[in-house]
Design a protein around this nucleic acid. Structure first.
Lengths: 123, 123
DNA sequence: TCAATGTGTGACATTAGTGTGAGGGTCAAG
DNA sequence: CTTGACCCTCACACTAATGTCACACATTGA
């Protein structure tokens, strides 16, 4: 799949796809003519990346998290440094905090909207 | 409370407190000497704001969400425009998506860390 | 073959949040 | 009264993500 199709399928500007590659978040082969060529799994990968960006993670961290998401359950211990583990634990905990924050605010907005709609019906 | 104390209590750089005020997210009175003076509730407000910033909401949106979080349950309908409601509904839905994304990734990281720690024990 | 479309690289601009420093008042403790 | 800590405003810088434009080559279809 070439970059245009990937862009469509992930609803992501071409510019960003090249940027993510530059940041080491996705990988592409090259066709003989120099065009980027992506394997199918990259579609999901891009969606993943975008999701994480949306919730405020920088590419630097996303890059470190990605290995956790590779369904291939092979873990090469030598590459898993204690430093890496610490980062992951930290990010995991931050995620938990974020989930809590979002949940709380999500509920608040919902309650508010409900109250408003009652007001409207009453008026 | 002056800005220094607020800064400490919220673990937020003074610079940012002034920025949030500029963006209309928090309010301050002024002492006779020109110093900012905050009421106690602002501490929570700042924490709220920071939480929302962390999960990727821009100040523009946060400003619109804040009224939902004022526990004073007074809703002045005339100020609640349909436009405003649409925004809130949209943000609420986006939050739900984010929660889902975070939850999924949080679990993935956790699973990974667990797998790693098993590997380590086995080696 | 020509035009339109897709792709490549590179450079510059923009936006938001944040850092940092200059220059100048306030105030309390020594 | 002076020193040090705190506050003020203003301005410039930085980073990350993203937009945009210029210019060149590739591909494809009329």
């Amino acid at each position: 799949m070439k970059i245009g199709e990937l862009s469509q399928r992930t609803d992501t500007p071409v510019r960003m796809l090249r940027y993510y590659e530059e940041q080491g978040l996705i990988h592409s082969e090259r066709l003989p003519n120099g065009y980027r060529s992506y394997e199918a799994y990259v579609v999901d990968r891009v969606r993943q990346v975008r999701g994480l960006l949306e919730v405020g993670l920088p590419t630097r961290i996303i890059k470190q998290i990605l290995p956790c998401l590779d369904s291939s359950r092979e873990i090469y211990l030598p590459y898993v440094t204690p430093d890496m583990i610490a980062t992951l634990e930290h990010e995991r905990d931050r995620m938990a905090e974020k989930i809590e924050c979002l949940t709380k605010n999500h509920r608040a907005i919902n309650d508010y909207l409900e109250a408003v709609s009652h007001e409207i019906r009453a008026s």
